[in-house]
Design a protein around this nucleic acid. Structure first.
Lengths: 347, 347
DNA sequence: GCGTCCAGCACGCACAGCACC
DNA sequence: TGGTGCTGTGCGTGCTGGACG
């Protein structure tokens, strides 16, 4: 019998223990937690004192069985891609987990069972009571998840805008505004030929950012002719940036739709003997951890991740509680972080 | 009444439904899932067929209430530090979540309630049945978590070695071997003066990596005199690298104990007009996503994250099941990823 | 007695409805 | 009466002990 009882630290404290110690019934203790306004103030104070004295914590299993809720938020982590800059998962996750705890929720991360059956995984998570609602990120062009969840009435929120047809609760960064800030910054430095390197048209995020560039250029009376669209990888961006630098009247600055593409632009510039941050100004988007580390340190548009996380959790929790949303679609204004990759145009 | 019943997609399928459909008792269905060897083969086949036909999934809440287990693995995400390179959280989390699902576990990420009361958070997670065991990373010098968990008999595993006193189940990267590979690589290029930039002594990881450098240098008949120890941030590393480059007979290569410190070395070199990857070779450790992006692309020691994650989950699941561990402490051999920051010494 | 399978109970909680002042 | 607090019940499982052949 030498083995320690690993799974049983000590007997759990239950509602009944608290009730006995406080001299009230189970239900009164339950109400003290879930419906405090049903108790007389002095009873409430007394029960609460006993609760904290005994260190009582409601059991999730039992509560979940009774209420049919897990108080768990599901988040399917996107698979890492070596040719894309690491996402800002670190800070985002931290912020989300923090906000969730504030609402007495927890965050469950999971991966799809198979590439094809991602939706099945969401179904399983729901059926087994492993999540009450979901947090979505990296919404793709024809993403099936929002519509699927919407049809089933499953609460979810998205970091990334949604078409009204498939969902109403989302938070996103105002890409147009972010890129416009980059244009303002560059014109302030004296640039007139500012190119844009974006994603293929039809991508919501990409179109948003490209639109911001176009209108900001127009606002400054500049021509928005120099642009290339390509997929969001370093290597593809380098090829696209090459085409921009091949233009007869070469741009003096490039705004990229992501940090990955900005790094690709660095490569293209160096390949023809141009020094980014001296001969060519470059602006990125996302402020990934790498942005501050590359040489020259990258000027980039930073997403307000903490605010986004807080809002997303707030919205999801409201949906889970069946409450109406105060704000359904929130566009956050990003900040331009100026580093060393943007300087006055040469000459 | 127009509002849809958001929380109730449709009535759940329970053990009883399956039992009725299969013409057996609840318990037999339960056994088909948890103790298949108690059933006659034909009964088992039949029941299993009905289970998959109805798409039955055991309810986590009920199961958790009965078994006193959540089938949840807790992971406290370390707070992001802007002056340190983003951790490799992305890939690690993905791998862990993947491995956990294979064992019918899920991963709950959480943050400490307060900086001081991290242990309280672990206690709460346990008490509320929000985790059965924990995954630890970033073990600090005098980390209180392993001992605390150990004393309470809480199952946990650590990514990062543990002193036998506070825990026996861990997986770690063989830092000494990784650094030795870096030394071999550099001597192969013709370097003789290879400095080491590490963490203050007493840090297990740091000592491990420093030891690898010392013994590899000795094996090559080289002097292991050039070393600096400092904290793991870019700025501190830059100052320490400065001191190395101030040495009368300047090293031609620097091996840093982390990618952050390698980037700090880049800065220090450039400040005195030395080009890393030409005048000075630099090797990092960790292969963070930024390593491939900095200029020159950083040669670095890569952690086998997938293997680590798989092993960690395997060990934790075994501990949770009360089974003996096949392997308690596993040292994984890292791989040197050669990029552009290491070249033959100048001259 | 052995191999299968089944009925009753308890896990800890929250809801409905009743009792009290 | 209305504000408070209490008792009975069931959520879906898995364990214990018993029944059947």
């Amino acid at each position: 019998m030498g083995g320690a009882a690993v799974t049983r630290p000590d007997r759990r404290i239950t509602l009944i223990d608290v009730a006995r110690a406080a001299g009230v019934s189970r239900q009164t203790v339950s109400n003290a937690i879930n419906a405090p306004d049903l108790l007389r103030p002095d009873t409430l104070t007394h029960v609460r004192a006993v609760i904290s004295r005994l260190g009582y914590q409601p059991d999730r299993g039992a509560r979940s069985l009774r209420t049919r809720q897990s108080r768990l938020i599901g988040y399917c982590v996107p698979p890492p891609d070596p040719d894309r800059l690491g996402w800002v998962l670190d800070e985002f996750l931290h912020s989300v987990a923090d906000a969730a705890r504030g609402a007495d929720y927890h965050l469950v991360v999971f991966t799809p069972e198979s590439a094809s059956g991602e939706l099945d995984t969401y179904a399983t998570m729901l059926q087994t009571g492993c999540a009450d609602g979901f947090l979505l990120t990296d919404i793709a062009r024809h993403d099936r998840r929002p519509g699927w969840l919407q049809r089933r009435g499953v609460p979810f929120v998205s970091y990334g805008r949604l078409s009204p047809r498939v969902g109403k609760a989302w938070v996103d960064v105002d890409g147009a505004s972010g890129v416009a800030k980059a244009v303002d910054h560059l014109t302030g430095l004296g640039h007139r030929r500012i190119a844009f390197l974006g994603w293929p048209e039809g991508h919501r995020l990409g179109d948003d950012r490209a639109g911001g560039w176009r209108s900001a250029m127009a606002a400054h009376g500049l021509d928005a002719g120099d642009r290339e669209y390509t997929e969001d990888t370093i290597s593809a961006a380098a090829r696209a940036a090459d085409r921009l630098l091949d233009l007869p009247d070469r741009p003096t600055a490039v705004i990229a739709a992501s940090d990955s593409m900005a790094v690709g632009t660095y490569h293209a510039a160096r390949n023809r003997g141009l020094a980014p941050g001296r001969d060519l100004s470059v602006v990125g988007f996302d402020d990934t951890p790498s942005a501050a580390l590359v040489t020259p340190a990258l000027t980039t548009v930073s997403q307000p991740l903490r605010d986004a996380a807080r809002l997303l959790v707030e919205m999801l929790v409201a949906r889970l509680a069946g409450e109406p949303l105060k704000r359904r679609a929130v566009l956050l204004d990003p900040v331009l972080v100026v580093r060393d990759s943007t300087v006055s145009p040469p000459g």
